[in-house]
Computed example of a mutant assay.
Amino acid sequence: MARFVVVALLWLSLASAQAADPSGMIVYQTDFGLRDSAVAEMKGVAKQVDRKLELFDNTHEIPPFDIWTAAFHLAHLVPYWPQGTVFVSVVDPGVGTERGAVVAKLKSGHFYVGPDNGSLTLVAEQIGIEAVHAIDYKKHRLPGSENSHTFHGRDIFSYVAARLASGQVPAEGFGPVLEGDVVRIPYQHAEIKDGTALGVIPILDINYGNVWTNIGRTTFEKLGIAKKEPVRVQIFDGETKVHDSVMPYVDTFGDVPEGDPLVYVNSVDEMALAINYGNFAESHKVSSGPTWRVILSRP
C-alpha cells in the first residue's frame, strides 16, 4: 500500500492550498452488480436532487458482503479524483440495523457517504479523516422511503450524497459529530519481525490470479534479498497454512520459465506472487482479505 500513502501525501499538500467544497461529482461503488435496477435507482435519486450532478462508477462487482474489498478499493480510488468529490460506498450487510451511517470529510478534501462498518479502515490510515458526522436519517432520507429498511444505498446514502455534492447541505448539516473513531477492520500491517516480512493479501489481481501483498518493496528490501535470489513464501488463512514454497525474486514474469512461480514488485510498489502464464491464486487455492496472512523470508 506504499503507493497509496505517497499519493495521499501529495493530495494532502494540495488540500492545504485549496478549499474542499463539494464538486458536484459523485463516485459510486457497491456489491450490487448490474443485473437489476439497483444502481440506476441510486443515480435516479441523485438526479432528482440535482440534474446537473455528474455521476460516475468505480465498480459494482465487489464480492457480496466483502467490506474489506470495499475499503481497499476506496483507499485506492480517492487520491485520483478532484477535491470535493463525494464517494458513496455501499457494501452493507448490516443494512437496517444499528450500524452507523456517516458523512466523512477526508483530510484530502474529499467526502465519503456510507455505512460506518469498516469501509473507512484504509482511508483513515492512509489519507486521514478530518471530521465524521452521523447521519440523522429520520430527517435526511428520500421522502417517502420511511418504511424501507433494506436499501439505504438508494434511500439514504445516494440522497445524502446528492444534497452534499450539490451544495444544498454541508457535511455538518446531516447530523452530530461522531463520538469516537470510525469502525476499523483489524489486520496484519506490514512489518519486519525476526528476519521475516509479515503482511496480508489485501486483494488479488483478479484477471490473472496474481497475489498482491501489503508488504512494500522498501520493507521487503530490509531482508537483504537481492534479485534472482530465492524467497520462502508462506501463506496462511487465519492459523491454517495454505502454501509454503521457495521461488525466485525477479523483475517480471518472463524472467522465469513458463509455468514457474515468482516473487516480484507490482505496479503499486508492493510485493506480489505470480506464475508465469499461470494463475497463482487458483493453483494454490489462495484468496484475499484481512485473514489471509503472508510471510516472506530467506529459505
Rank of each mutant, 00 (worst) to 15 (best):
A134F: 03
G175M: 11
S37A: 03
V5N: 09
A17Q: 14
V177Y: 10
T97I: 05
F65Q: 07
E130C: 07
E239K: 02
F32K: 05
G94M: 00
V102L: 09
P202N: 11
L198G: 13
L34H: 11
A134Y: 03
M42F: 05
L120H: 11
S166R: 01
P82N: 04
H189C: 08
E125K: 07
P79R: 12
V91I: 06
E54M: 15
V7D: 15
R35M: 10
A40H: 05
K227Y: 13
V211R: 00
K138E: 07
P93K: 01
K241P: 14
A124F: 03
V78E: 00
D21A: 11
L204V: 04
Q234I: 08
G238Y: 01
G44A: 05
D181F: 05
E125W: 01
T291R: 10
Q234F: 12
S23F: 00
E61F: 11
H60D: 15
D194R: 04
A131G: 10
Q126Y: 13
S148E: 13
V160L: 01
D205S: 15
W81Q: 14
D251W: 13
D244R: 09
D21S: 12
S267Y: 11
A17V: 06
G128R: 04
L12V: 06
I192G: 01
E229R: 07
S119E: 10
V183P: 01
